[in-house]
Amino acid sequence: MISAKRLVNMARKWQKMAAGKRKRISYKRDDDGDKYSSAANKGHFVVYSMDHKRFVVPLKYLKSNVFKELLKWSEEEFGLASDGPLVLPCEGVVLEYVISLVEERVPEEVEKLLITSMATCHGLASSSVAPPQGHQTTSHNSWLLESF
């Protein structure tokens, strides 16, 4: 069985790579503020974070467990709304990180850890005891690791 320490190390490694990648990823959030801009490129779909950041994501990411979990939480949080874009129940910084991990096709163990750590975040959000805004946006990476 894989040790917790090794998992944390793996997660750190992936996180580092993702952080490096973030500067040049094509699905980078769209801060134009044009919420209802034209349709995504071919083979992509669009999601918004709680803080109204727009992400254009490859369609195949919908097959990942992480996205399936996020969609499930979105349904629990907001119901299945039909009259607007998809909103996922997490902050833009977290979603950006999650997407970068899916892009890197992280090992299954890390994916599971990610889901567990997101569940903590989701639990906080749904019980309305979200951490202070500033804390979450400035140090989300370390916060994500702390929960490992």
Partner: peptide, 12 residues
């Protein structure tokens, strides 16, 4: 409404 293409929606 989901800001995507119909041809892509059908693939989900």
């Amino acid at each position: 409404k989901r800001e995507m293409r119909y041809s892509d929606l059908k693939k989900i």
